[in-house]
Amino acid sequence: MAKTIEIVTFRLAEGVTEEAFIAETKTMEREFLGKLQGFIDRDTGKSADGGWIVVLHWASAEDAQASMNKFVDAPGTKAFTACLDMSTFQMVRYTLEDFYKLEANVSV
């Protein structure tokens, strides 16, 4: 099984503040996402024009799909999903082909 990268882009629903969204994100990460098999980590970022991106890393494509199957009906994800403008929601999964991490003590 190959590691999987999941990239999600969206905009916030009308009336949802960034602070409310980040609060719901943190709750969902700790109460739902972090407890799922194969979850590695998740980054959330915002562009200058108000678009959002979430990058998730999974142990496998199967783990990523299993999370989505659970996410849809989980009570702990409803408030998070309500923050999103679902008409702008896009998700793509990729198989990890290369990984590079700069070591902390590297000198040139």
Results as ranks from 00 to 15, higher is better:
residue 105 N to M: 09
residue 99 F to S: 12
residue 43 D to M: 13
residue 44 T to H: 11
residue 17 T to S: 15
residue 27 T to L: 09
residue 100 Y to N: 07
residue 106 V to K: 14
residue 22 I to R: 15
residue 40 I to N: 02
residue 54 V to F: 04
residue 93 R to D: 00
residue 38 G to K: 08
residue 3 K to W: 05
residue 68 M to Y: 05
residue 89 F to K: 04
residue 104 A to F: 03
residue 62 E to T: 10
residue 92 V to F: 01
residue 37 Q to P: 09
residue 69 N to V: 15
residue 101 K to G: 07
residue 105 N to L: 12
residue 46 K to W: 02
residue 34 G to A: 04
residue 17 T to P: 01
residue 16 V to T: 15
residue 8 V to D: 02
residue 73 D to M: 06
residue 104 A to E: 13
residue 85 D to L: 12
residue 54 V to Y: 08
residue 8 V to N: 10
residue 94 Y to F: 13
residue 86 M to W: 07
residue 33 L to T: 15
residue 103 E to A: 04
residue 49 D to H: 03
residue 80 F to I: 03
residue 67 S to A: 12
residue 23 A to S: 08
residue 21 F to H: 14
residue 68 M to K: 14
residue 24 E to C: 04
residue 58 W to I: 00
residue 44 T to G: 02
residue 13 A to I: 08
residue 44 T to W: 13
residue 38 G to T: 07
residue 62 E to Q: 12
residue 40 I to F: 01
residue 8 V to A: 07
residue 97 E to Y: 06
residue 34 G to Y: 09
residue 41 D to W: 10
residue 99 F to A: 12
residue 84 L to A: 08
residue 58 W to R: 00
residue 79 A to G: 02
residue 97 E to P: 01
residue 27 T to I: 10
residue 80 F to V: 06
residue 90 Q to Y: 05
residue 27 T to E: 08
residue 39 F to C: 01
residue 40 I to M: 07
residue 107 S to P: 01
residue 69 N to G: 02
residue 55 V to S: 03
residue 89 F to G: 03
residue 51 G to N: 13
residue 70 K to P: 00
residue 26 K to F: 08
residue 6 E to V: 09
residue 64 A to M: 02
residue 65 Q to V: 12
residue 42 R to N: 11
residue 21 F to D: 05
residue 19 E to I: 11
residue 12 L to H: 10
residue 91 M to E: 09
residue 24 E to Y: 05
residue 23 A to Q: 09
residue 24 E to S: 05
residue 87 S to P: 05
residue 78 K to R: 15
residue 4 T to V: 10
residue 51 G to L: 08
residue 97 E to M: 11
